[in-house]
């Protein structure tokens, strides 16, 4: 659905600043109906890639096609199937919610007969009921985001591009926004590409791309990315963590560390933890409150892939 081939973007320098390669020979595909997240440390080129994808910048070299239309030669056709949610909301804060939606309907030539039905459908999942005649500047950040997404969804896009849409939202608004996005993804079969560096957002998506210095470092399912690290860890909770740790070391010869009431075993190769867990459970059952195998998180993958270039947080 989104097809990027050998894309390079070089920012022209000035007398004082040398030209800067923001995206370097990048190829990437997002298949129809997939939800992909694009992440990378600050300055990794993801914002540049985003600007190219929504047609605001023209790349130095390479091809991009969206829904089968070439972005460079048929930008108008691409705009027709594309919905874009920017980091700074593209709503007019001095206008009311209804006025903003009406302008959007004009921009996308939604027939007047369909407008109210389409608007109600786009607003159905939001908390904006009763706020239609309020100016956007009087709404909270979370509600303003909802206006933005409702506005984009009203145009029935086939491909949705989002640039760090949850920036500045509190955790509750953030979760509501992402839940709505996931639901719409499933209900409408939308193809979604979203930039983000909050990894809790990436756990439920189809694929995660990690960029660094303009290059694509990894692009796979969250499971496969976690498996890339190749290790897992047994974690035991116990009332007597210190004494249990001592016995594990002396009797089984394991390397352990104690964090609070948790005993953490050294990382093992994938698959080796389960037999270990069974053995420990069998021998020390009375001392164990809970025992589990911890998979590495996506932020661990991010730090590994990007060489610790960023913390993975905003």
């Amino acid at each position: 659905m989104i097809r990027i081939r050998n894309l390079t973007h070089i920012y022209p320098g000035s007398r004082k600043v040398a030209p800067h390669v923001a995206v370097s020979d990048l190829s990437l595909d997002v298949r129809e109906g997939e939800f992909a997240i694009l992440s990378g440390p600050n300055g990794s080129g993801k914002s540049t890639l985003f600007r190219i994808l929504c047609g605001l910048a023209r790349p130095s070299t390479g091809q991009v096609s969206i829904a089968g239309f070439d972005l460079l030669t048929e930008p108008a056709r691409v705009r027709g199937v594309l919905g874009v949610v920017f980091q700074s909301p593209a709503v007019d804060k001095q206008l009311t919610v209804a006025e903003n939606l009406a302008i959007q309907a004009d921009l996308y030539d939604i027939p007047a007969a369909d407008y109210l039905a389409r608007r109600d459908l786009a607003l159905a999942w939001t908390d904006l009921g009763g706020r239609l005649d309020n100016r956007v500047e009087t709404l909270s950040g979370g509600l303003a985001r909802q206006v933005e997404l409702a506005k984009v969804l009203m145009t029935n896009p086939r491909v949705l591009l989002l640039d760090e849409p949850t920036t500045g939202l509190d955790p509750v608004s953030r979760r509501n926004f992402l839940e709505a996005l996931q639901r719409l993804h499933h209900e409408r079969g939308l193809t979604i590409l979203m930039t983000s560096h909050v990894f809790s957002e990436a756990e439920d998506v189809d694929r995660v791309a990690i960029m660094r210095e303009g290059k694509l470092m990894a692009y796979d399912t969250p499971q496969a990315l976690r498996a890339m690290i190749g290790t897992e860890m047994v974690v035991i909770q116990s009332r007597e963590a210190a004494s249990l740790a001592g016995r594990l070391e002396s009797e089984l010869g394991l390397t352990v560390s104690v964090v609070g009431d948790e005993v953490r075993l050294a990382e093992t190769e994938n698959g080796d933890s389960l037999p270990l867990l069974e053995k420990i459970l069998h021998r020390y059952r009375p001392d164990i409150r809970s025992i589990s195998i911890k998979q590495p998180g996506l932020d661990d993958v991010f730090v590994r892939v990007t060489g610790g270039a960023a913390s993975g947080q905003e």
């Binding site: 929504c54 047609g55 108008a76 027709g80 920017f86 700074s88 593209a90 709503v91 030539d109 506005k151």
Partner: peptide
């Protein structure tokens, strides 16, 4: 600055 313009630019107009 406010972001409204980019929303118009990506619209099929």
């Amino acid at each position: 600055d406010a972001g409204f313009l980019q929303g118009v630019l990506v619209a099929p107009v």
